[in-house]
Design a protein around this nucleic acid. Structure first.
Lengths: 112, 112
DNA sequence: TTTATATACATAATTTTGTTATGTATATAA
DNA sequence: TTATATACATAACAAAATTATGTATATAAA
């Protein structure tokens, strides 16, 4: 699993958004969903994903339940109420950033 | 000057793109242009900008000329030929990332 | 006139946030 | 029995920011 340096700063937002789009998800499922939606362009590394999930939980944005499925432990994450508000705010920030960055990248090249 | 954590990873691309949009620019001018185009949303810190410019120069993407204007030194940066190719490639990457991120952020919220 | 703000560059210390590597463990297909 | 997929986790390291600090000139405000 290798990632994109551009990912920096957006991982938490991606996680929160996915958990807004689906009631509950577990870590591995998140990596697969991101891979699917980005058509392979964004691959989350476990070294980034799990610490990020733990931090979001420690911050009170996510809560967890563990289940054994097919003999393997799965840790399901779900948004807390606090997390629900955070999604809204993070999405607004991320959307503004995307728009501003897009404006910069759309500047016309100098004629030379 | 305070920045956006989302900036991470995109600074080099922004600099290269600006220098594609205008023949030559100096550091301070870059901070002002980014501020203007992003309507204040993206504020480059000097601690990030100058090291990034130095790195791009060391990598052969930019070349510099110093001029004294109004009693103050200005260091003008310009794309090298190598830098011109790098812009194209970085822009492609950044655009792909923006599109993929946008897809993720557009996922429909779960009904609950 | 001295103070604050804007212009203009730079770097060091620190923090954040990734990558890479490694580890444990089960299920399944080759 | 070997490789791949599933599933979690953490430690060592690196990249890339932030924050703080420094130098210096020009200009407007108090």
């Amino acid at each position: 699993m290798n990632t994109n340096p551009l990912l920096k700063g957006t991982l938490q937002t991606i996680i929160l958004k996915l958990l807004e789009s689906k009631d509950r998800m577990y870590g591995y499922e998140i990596t697969q969903k991101v891979k699917e939606v980005s058509e392979g362009g964004i691959m989350l590394t476990e070294g980034a994903l799990y610490p990020a999930l733990h931090k979001l939980e420690a911050d009170g944005f996510l809560e967890t339940t563990v289940e054994i499925v097919d003999g393997r432990a799965r840790k399901y994450y779900r948004l807390t109420e606090h997390g629900g508000k955070e999604v809204t705010s993070k999405l607004k920030e991320a959307q503004a950033f995307i728009d501003q960055l897009q404006n910069l990248l759309n500047l016309k090249p100098a004629i030379k």
